[in-house]
Simulated assay, not measured.
Amino acid sequence: MSTVILLRHGKSTANGSGVLAGRTPKVNLDETGQKQAEALVERLSPVPLAELVISPLLRCRQTVGPLAKARGLGRTTEPRLSEVDYGDWTGRELKTLFKEPLWRVVQAHASAAVFPGGEGLAAMQARAVAAVRAHDARISAEHGENAVWLLCSHGDVIKSILADALGQHLDAFQRIVVDPSSISVVRYTETRPFVLRVNDHSGDLAGIVPPKPPAKPKRGKAKAGADAGDAVVGGSTGR
């Protein structure tokens, strides 16, 4: 299977506003977010990208815009990667939401949290994980198992995907930090996912590109060894 870069959209006009924007339309990148989007072009220059798959919300489209233009890549819009539907909480001030009994459930027992008039976090994780695995399988089939592709989505959505990749219960997903414009990386295999980066802001990304596979042995001379989905006992030796 292939490798996916999980990119959270750049800083938006809603980030830091004290209001839960959710799926509110026309939430743009702010000046910082625009600079973050432009910086992605250089930052991802060592990484060949097969495809861009994004949430339909404007701030995600804006985040990958400069990169798509520089690479000449189209963008596949995936509704299952959209922001959490916070329902009646959308547009409300966080300082008032802190006082809601549901707030503590979201923090400590996320799998049981269902937003009034919206969706549950468990349902969000199910749709997001289904989407990333479906696109990963499709891209692997079309571009090969060494393909690298980029997914641009939202904080809680990416945290839920990472929790699944880590084999971590959704109730603990609040332990994962995913900042605006940060990059996390997961490599999927037939056996298990491998988490290569989490909340990375400035690391060299050349190392996430899978090495070329070794030449296949001649018929009748199959070589025994570890499968691609096996972890290295004792730890990786690096690149």
Rank of each mutant, 00 (worst) to 15 (best):
M1P: 11
L7G: 12
H9I: 10
G10V: 13
K11T: 15
S12F: 08
G16K: 04
A21H: 02
G22W: 02
R23Y: 06
T24L: 08
N28H: 15
D30L: 04
D30Q: 05
D30S: 07
E31D: 15
E31V: 12
G33C: 04
A37P: 03
E38V: 07
E38Q: 15
L40V: 04
P46N: 08
V47F: 09
P48N: 12
L49W: 05
E51L: 05
E51W: 07
I54C: 15
P56R: 12
P56W: 09
R59P: 13
R61P: 00
Q62E: 15
T63E: 00
V64Q: 03
V64T: 12
P66K: 02
A68K: 05
K69M: 09
G72F: 04
L73M: 08
R75Y: 05
T76Y: 02
T77D: 09
R80C: 07
L81E: 07
V84H: 11
V84G: 03
D85L: 02
D85G: 10
Y86W: 15
Y86K: 06
W89E: 06
G91C: 04
G91T: 03
L94K: 08
E100T: 02
V106Q: 05
A108G: 09
S111W: 01
A112W: 00
A113T: 13
G117M: 10
E119T: 06
M124D: 07
M124Q: 12
Q125A: 11
R127C: 01
A128I: 02
A131V: 06
H135C: 02
H135Y: 14
A137L: 07
E142Y: 00
E145V: 10
W149M: 00
W149E: 02
C152P: 07
H154T: 11
K159R: 15
I161T: 08
L162F: 08
L162V: 13
A163L: 05
G167C: 01
H169V: 14
D171P: 05
D171T: 10
F173K: 06
F173Q: 10
Q174C: 06
R175H: 13
S182I: 05
S182M: 08
V185S: 04
V185Y: 04
V186N: 04
Y188P: 01
Y188L: 09
Y188M: 12
V195P: 09
V198T: 12
D200M: 12
D200F: 07
D204M: 02
L205R: 12
I208T: 10
P210V: 04
K212T: 14
A215H: 03
G220W: 06
A224E: 13
A224Y: 10
A226C: 00
S236V: 14
T237R: 14
